[in-house]
Design a protein around this nucleic acid. Structure first.
Length: 472
DNA sequence: GTAGCCTTGAGG
DNA sequence: CCTCAAGGCTAC
């Protein structure tokens, strides 16, 4: 459509295409999608899709599948946290400045269009590219991307029996309903991809952290019925979390299998065992990401870039959070449930490793004093995963928006739970940057060990170690 | 349950 | 004051 002066720029609802009535919950939407989003979030509605969770949502069909409609609302960037837990009317929220910026950008663009006579379709997205990705709901089939990691090195310590995994094979093939992710050729628009719908509305509680079912009662305060509630997004993050006990059993079984499967394993040293454990934990991290809200909406290429960039941070966070949540002075709790005395580690470690452990332990102690909880760790995981600083992301606006949402959710959560929330919030952000620098050191250490042939050939770990260096 | 219109109230 | 994005109300 050619720009006409009497038609305002882009005034169609990104969810259903109806006429926009203003900014609602983070972006310009129509009145009906505003109401639908509000009802869904306020009443904690659960919908089920009767089809394949890929129903087309437009003005005439939007009533047919609330599940897909809500997924689309989330996908285009409507913000759960903009629905007020206390139901207070009127006033302004924190999105005010964002709306203002967006308006200014739209004005600017309108002026440009008027001046240059540009065609509408070629205009770049302003707030989020997500709605444009969705507006083209069928995917062109394009060649699969080639994994741009260096070839796996030959095993110097070839005692590990399982096949070579690649992050790429872990990501798309195993995700149910996500078979449509394909790399788009550069001649096609970046957002020509069939969107996979997240499943947060119907996700079963058993896939979540076990104890957390799905209601507000998790965080509502008995003494204050209208008081702080668990922010919606934090609830979603918790739903994505891995069940610790299940994971413990799975990894313990896997390690036992590895050890009994091969005679040579009998004398696997502690370091090799730790690497195996890290490798298995990485698998669980990839699985967690794969089933997580927002992440599964990304194209595989972006998923890989994000995971390649933050795997060591997530791994380290996994270890640290376990120590904080089950704090025991002077010992380290492994993912298998075993405890190792800190003094034993110190006596066997070389100076580099000892200093890494020391720094990690300091972080654990600080977080233990802060009493950082599962919910905060869940937010931090998303902050690490959705890192907008990663280079060459195809859907950078979406990833940036998730980062902002996760940060907002964490802030809101600390507001609910702490009397000095700002101090707490900035402590947590500080922790984030310290975790990042520590993970870089740990990664370098591991890479050196790998080069000297001391890391067993547990493939995902090594693939990750190589990936970042080949991306760089 | 949906969606159009109404009321509210902080911020400019 | 006015604006406008929240929540509320209600005919359908």
């Amino acid at each position: 459509m050619e720009y006409r002066h009497d038609v305002d720029v882009e005034e169609l609802c990104p969810v259903c295409g109806d006429k926009v009535s203003g900014y609602h919950y983070g972006l310009l939407t129509c009145e009906s999608c505003k109401g639908f989003f509000k009802r869904t979030v306020q009443n904690n509605k659960k919908y089920i899709c009767a089809e394949n969770q890929e129903c087309r949502i437009d003005q005439t069909q939007r009533k047919r599948c609330p599940f897909c409609r809500f997924q689309k609302c989330l996908h285009v960037g409507m913000r759960l946290e903009a629905v007020r837990a206390d139901r207070m009317r009127g006033g302004r929220n924190k999105f005010g400045p964002m709306y203002k910026r967006d308006r200014a950008l739209k004005q600017q663009r309108k002026a440009l269009i008027q001046a240059g006579g540009f065609r509408m379709e070629s205009s770049p997205p302003l707030v989020s590219s997500a709605h444009q990705r969705d507006s083209t709901y069928t995917a062109g089939l394009h060649p699969l991307p080639i994994l741009s990691t260096t070839p796996l090195p030959t095993a110097q310590n070839d005692c590990i029996s399982y096949q070579i995994p690649s992050l790429f094979t872990l990501l798309p093939s195993n995700s149910p309903g996500a078979t449509q992710y394909q790399c788009t050729s550069s001649t096609f628009s970046n957002w020509t991809v069939k969107s996979e719908h997240t499943n947060i509305c119907t996700s079963s509680p058993d896939s979540a952290a076990g104890i957390y079912t799905d209601s507000d009662e998790v965080y509502s305060r008995p003494f204050s019925p209208h008081g702080p509630m668990m922010p919606q997004l934090v609830m979603e993050f918790m739903r994505c979390d891995t069940d610790e006990l299940q994971l413990r059993n799975k990894i313990s079984a896997r390690l036992q299998q590895e050890q009994s499967g091969c005679e040579k394993h009998k004398n696997l040293n502690t370091f090799s065992l730790m690497c195996l454990m890290a490798d298995q934990t990485l698998f669980s991290i990839v699985e967690w990401a794969r089933r997580s809200i927002f992440f599964k909406q990304l194209k595989v290429t972006d998923q890989m870039k994000l995971l390649h960039s933050c795997w060591s941070e997530l791994l380290l966070l996994d270890i640290i959070s376990r120590q904080v949540l089950h704090y025991k002075e002077d010992s380290v709790l492994l993912i298998t449930g075993q405890e190792v005395e800190l003094s034993a580690i110190a006596s066997h470690a070389n100076p580099t490793l000892a200093s890494l452990v020391q720094r990690g332990q300091e972080l654990v102690e600080r977080l233990t004093i802060l009493k950082v909880d599962r919910e905060e760790f869940a937010c931090i995981k998303f902050l690490l995963l959705f890192n907008p600083d990663v280079k060459q992301l195809e859907d950078h606006p979406f990833i940036e928006s998730v980062q902002e949402q996760a940060e907002g959710a964490l802030l809101e959560y600390t507001l609910c739970t702490s009397s000095q929330s700002l101090g707490r919030f900035s402590h947590l952000l500080l922790f984030l940057s310290e975790l990042r620098s520590l993970s870089t050191l740990a990664e370098d250490y591991l890479y050196c060990k790998h080069l000297s042939g001391e890391v067993p050939c547990n493939n995902l770990l090594i693939e990750m170690l190589h990936a970042k260096r080949s991306w760089a």
